[in-house]
Simulated scan of single mutants.
Amino acid sequence: MDGTAQRASTGVPAIERDEGWYAERRTEILRSMAEVERHTLATNIVGTAVIIAFSQLLPNAQSFLLPAILRFVAIGLTSLVYVRIRARLATGASIDGVYRACILVGTLAGASWAYLILPLFLEPTFHPAAFLVLAGALIATSLVITNTSSLPQIWVAFCASFLLVFWFGMAGAPEEFRMPVLFGITVILLAVAAFAIGAARNRIFAAGMLVDNRRLGEDLAEALAEAEFLAKRDPLTGLYNRRAMFEGDTMSEMDRHLLLIDIDNFKQVNDLYGHDMGDRVLIRIGQVLRDTLREIGGHGHKAARLGGEEFAVVLCIADEQEADFVAEKLRAAIAELADEFDMAERLGTASVGISTFAGDERISDALQRADNALYAAKAAGRNTVRRFTS
């Protein structure tokens, strides 16, 4: 189903199937396989031990000793690899190297099972234990193929090594039933693989859905974070917007100072140099306000773009002279920006009005006083700071 069809049928945006998506799906499948291995390890060990115990009832019991050792070595190495996989998945580390090791232990596992059943055919016997050993081994290989069938590289490596070892080993079997056994075991293994591949589709689909849901969740969280940012921030400068500045509308704890900053002759900046230049100037002013508030230290300072070329700054400073010093510092820094952009005289500088307001006072009231002080700064020739006096 393509993206358009998916959106039409479900109403959910389509997820892009890129290389990262397929890697995430493989990781989820491997996580599931690792959990299955963890929960079935004891059963695997006991089952293998029982099969080997039955083999010791056969006349050629000694022929099963080396295959038994190899089988337990394969179990141990497989367990270690999956422990490593679970550890890396838990920390979010890359599993590429461990995945290759998983393919190798899968190859060893397939070879070990083939090696374990070879003595049954190299020295044939109709002892009942022989049928139990063969049945147990075929059941075990079927379970391995079923658990790994969601990742072709692993189950193909398992099946290929099983068949190669079995075919090669059967060269020493009695000729009269060599071909029937080779044919029969091969058909059984391939039939199991075909069934497992069909059953694996559900696991692959579930892993894909898990990745889709996670990506949709991440996209939704990102969209919500962006929406929250835009609800409180000016999209051009990144400063708070007018709504965020007046949120709550009252400040507490201490007396503060409100600075109302207006960029001088900003309309002429846009007219003479273009709106792109105007936006660049506003962005740099936003950087100056943030940097200055960071330099003075303390907590609770706030800078906002109220609209157009008008900015507001709340200073959590009790001392009036210190607040006036910060206001003058901001004015001078903005004037330097006018020189930085090589603008004509009296363009791009800032006029600043200051008002002190008590902790329980409405910001809107303090803003009105700061606006009056701003008009006084404009009347004084612009590019200056004025404090409101009653």
Rank of each mutant, 00 (worst) to 15 (best):
L89W: 03
A90V: 06
V105A: 01
V105E: 01
I103G: 02
T107I: 11
R71N: 11
R88A: 12
A114N: 14
F131L: 15
L77V: 12
V133Q: 06
P119W: 08
P124L: 13
V73N: 08
R100K: 07
L118I: 12
L120F: 09
L89Y: 06
A87E: 13
L118R: 13
T78I: 05
A114K: 06
E123D: 13
T91H: 14
T107H: 10
T107N: 06
L120Q: 10
L132D: 09
F126C: 07
P119S: 07
I85P: 06
I103Y: 00
A90M: 09
R100L: 14
T125R: 03
L108Y: 13
F131R: 06
I117R: 07
F72H: 04
R88D: 13
R71S: 14
V83I: 12
I75C: 05
I103K: 07
L89R: 08
F72Q: 00
D96H: 05
I85T: 11
I85S: 05
A74I: 00
A130I: 09
D96G: 06
F126I: 13
L122K: 01
G92T: 04
A90K: 07
L134Q: 07
T107C: 14
A87M: 01
L108E: 12
T78P: 00
G106H: 00
V83R: 14
L80G: 07
R71M: 15
R86G: 08
R71A: 14
V105R: 00
I95M: 07
A129S: 10
V105F: 05
W113A: 15
G76T: 13
I95R: 00
L104Q: 08
V98A: 09
F131K: 06
P119E: 09
P128E: 12
V98S: 03
L108D: 03
R86S: 15
V83K: 13
E123A: 15
V73A: 07
A101T: 05
V98H: 06
I117Q: 06
L120H: 11
S112H: 02
